[in-house]
Design a protein around this nucleic acid. Sequence first.
RNA 1: UGGGCUAUGGCCAAGAGGUUAAGGCAUCGGACUUUGACUCCGACAUCGAAGGUUCGAAUCCUUCUAGCCCAGCCA
Length: 546
Amino acid sequence: MENRNFIRTIIEDDLRTGKHDAPITRFPPEPGGLLHLGHARAIILNHSLAEEYGGYFNLRFDDTNPIKAEESFVQGIQKDIAWLGCHWKHLLFASDYFDEMYHRAMVLVKKGLAYVCDLTSDEMREYRGDLTSPGTNSPYRERSIEENIQLFEAMKNGEFDDGAKVLRAKIDMASPNMNMRDPIIYRIQRATHHNTKDKWCIYPMYDFAHPIEDAIEGITHSLCSLEFEDHRPLYDWFVKHCEMEKVPRQIEFGKLMIANQVTGKRHIKRLVDDGIVEGWDDPRLITLAGLRRRGIPPQAIHEFIKAIGLPKSQGLTEIDMFYEIVRDYLSREARRIMSVVDPIKVIVTNYPEGKVESLETDYHRDHEALGSRKVYFGKELYIERDDFIEEKPNKKWKRLALGIEVRLMHGYFIKANDVFYNEDGSIKEIHATYDPNTQSGSGFNERKPNGTIHFVEASTAKEVEIRLFEDLVDNFEDKTIPIEDKINPNSKIVKTGYIEGDVKPKDKEAFQFTRLGYFALDDDSSEEKFVFNRVVELKSSFKVKR
RNA sequence: UGGGCUAUGGCCAAGAGGUUAAGGCAUCGGACUUUGACUCCGACAUCGAAGGUUCGAAUCCUUCUAGCCCAGCCA
C-alpha cells in the first residue's frame, strides 16, 4: 500500500508519540443485509491499516436491533469478508456485551447522568425541538437517582410494555447538535434476538452501544463514515462518563458511493422479493456476493480501493473506473480463448470433407506459464454474426464481407464467396474458401487480410450458455422515477454460444473471450453444461453498431 | 433561518507558501496490431467566488456562495 492519507497520518502520529503501540480497528456491519462494493473501502481500510502498523482488526456485528439482525446475513458477511482476504482476529457481536452495557448504563444512572423517561415517541419528538429552536426538558428529567435505578431495573425485568419507557442520557436539550438533546440509551423491545434469544427485552441504541463496544475491545481508531461526524461529541461523552478505561477515537471518512448502482438494503430487498433480481448474489448487483458470482476477482477490488484514495469529502465514483481495473487485472491473469456468442455457420468449401486439424496455441501471448491448447480447424466453423456483412461498408470495416479475405485467429485466411438465407431473411450460412498457405504462425505475408476475427470449429465446439449483463438500472440518480420503472430490459441476456473444444475450464475460472470480454463460470455450471457470466466487456474504439 | 462537514478538469483524486497544479477513469486525435484489446505517442484545469497578506498562495486571513449530513424508541 502506498497512498498516504489523513488517517495514516493520525495513526503514525499516535505511534510516534507513544499514544498507542499498534492500531486496533474493527469493521462493524449490521447483519441486516449483505455488503456491497462501497463497504469494501471500510473493510480493506480497517484491515490493512491494522495489519501494516502491526495491530489487528476485529469483525464485530452491530446487532443491537433484534428485529433487523438475521443469522443468514451474519454468515454471508463473513463469507464476503473472507473472500476479500481480510482476516479478523476476533469475531464479535455487540450482543456479546449486553451485560456490560447494562452495567455501564447503570453507572450513568447512578451518576445522575441518565434518567428513565415516559414520553411517547410523538411527545419526545415535540420536546426535541427542531433544527433552529431548542428542545424542552422532559417532565421526567428530574426523577431521583433512586427512582431511576429502580425504573431502569424494572425496564430490564420486563415490567413495562414495549415503548412505554426509555432510558435517556441527561445532556442538554438546548444543544445545537440534535444528537446531544438527551439521546435515548435503551428502548424496550420484545423481540427474539438471533444471539441472545429472549434474554433481553431492552436493547441499547447505536450511539450508546458503539463507543462502549469500541472501548471494551480496546479499539484505538474507530473509523466510520461522514454522517457520524456530529455524533462524535456524544461518542466521547459516553466513553468518558461510562468511565471506560480505554479511549477509542472516532475518525470519519467519505463513504464510497458508486454511481448508477443499486446498493440500498431496502432497494435490494425489494428487487429480490419481486423477483427482479435472483438474489443478493445476482451478478447485476455490486454486492460482494454479486461481484463474486459474476466472476470479479477480489484482487481487483483491492486495486480499485487503492486507486480511488481516501478522501474526507463525499464523492460519487463512476463504475467504469472499477471495470477498467478489473480488465487490467484479468488481462494479466486470465487465459484467453475463442468463443462465439452469436454464431453463424461458415462452410469452407475447399476444405476436405471430414477432416479436422489442430494447432497448438498458447493461452496468452505474453504469459507462457498459462499453457496452451489445441485450436481446431475444419470444414464447418462458427463465426460471430457481427463479424460478417454482405458488402464492406467502408475502408474501416476490418471484418468479413463477400469477396473479402480475413484472418481467422489461430487458423487460416478465409474469403467469403456466398451467403445463404433462412426464410425470415436471416443469414443461414456463409460459404468461404481458405488458403492453405496462410496458416497461423506460418509467417505468410504475401497478402494483408482485411482484419482478424475469431471463430470456433463446429464439430469440436462445446455448446455453452452465456449470460450478458449490463447495468441493472438506467438513470438511477433520478429519484422521481420508482426503481421498478428504471430496470434496464437488457440488463441480462442469455445466449447459447460455443467455446473451443479443447478448453477445460476450472472452477469459477475467468477467461478472456478474444475480442469480446472477460467471462467467468457461473455457479449454475455443471460438467455437462458450462454457464458463463460476462464479467466485463473489452474496451472498443469501434464506433459503428454493437 | 441552528449545528457539523466539504469544495482542485465530465468522474475519482494528489497537493499542507516557491512544482510546468501528480496520477487514474472517461473523452478526442494518431502509431502499432494474428484481439477495432493491450502497448505507445499527443490533446484535455489555474484550484467554488471575491477581496486581502506575501517577493511569491490551490496552499495563510476575511467575507461570500454552493453541496452534503442531523429533528428514528434505525445503524
